[in-house]
């Protein structure tokens, strides 16, 4: 996960409290989405960024997992094209597995 984004997540969680923040991912690929999820739950696994050794335990979902919570019109406008392009199952499975492992 990109250093600047790690810093932003860390700052946001400190400012509002970890119980007030939910992270929604939009990554195009299962492995990178999984790594990002792991980072905001358990800390940066590459030991390179601001979240190294900091387990924020934030709830984290991929946008494709929470389709039902989004206004259908907005979803159609913003996400439906990518839903056709991406490997939705692989992303969902990876997200679930990461949450099981680290949450």
């Amino acid at each position: 996960m990109d250093m600047a984004n790690q810093a932003r997540i860390k700052e946001t969680a400190e400012k509002f409290g970890s119980d007030q923040v939910v992270v929604i991912l939009g990554g195009a690929e299962a492995e990178s989405a999984g790594l990002t999820a792991e980072t905001v739950i358990n800390g940066d696994p590459t030991y390179a960024g601001p979240l190294t050794n900091i387990a924020l335990k934030l709830p984290v979902y991929h946008i494709l997992e929470i389709k039902d919570l989004v206004e259908p019109e907005v979803y159609d406008d913003q996400i439906s094209m990518m839903e056709m392009v991406l490997d939705v199952e692989a992303i969902k499975n990876e997200m679930e597995s990461i949450r099981r492992q680290f949450s």
Partner: peptide, 26 residues
Amino acid sequence: AGAGDVPLANYKMIGAMAVKRGEITR
């Protein structure tokens, strides 16, 4: 390096728009 096939990703996105617009089938 994990960045995938950039042209292919672009073509899939353009194709998905053609599906959305009913120009081609899924």
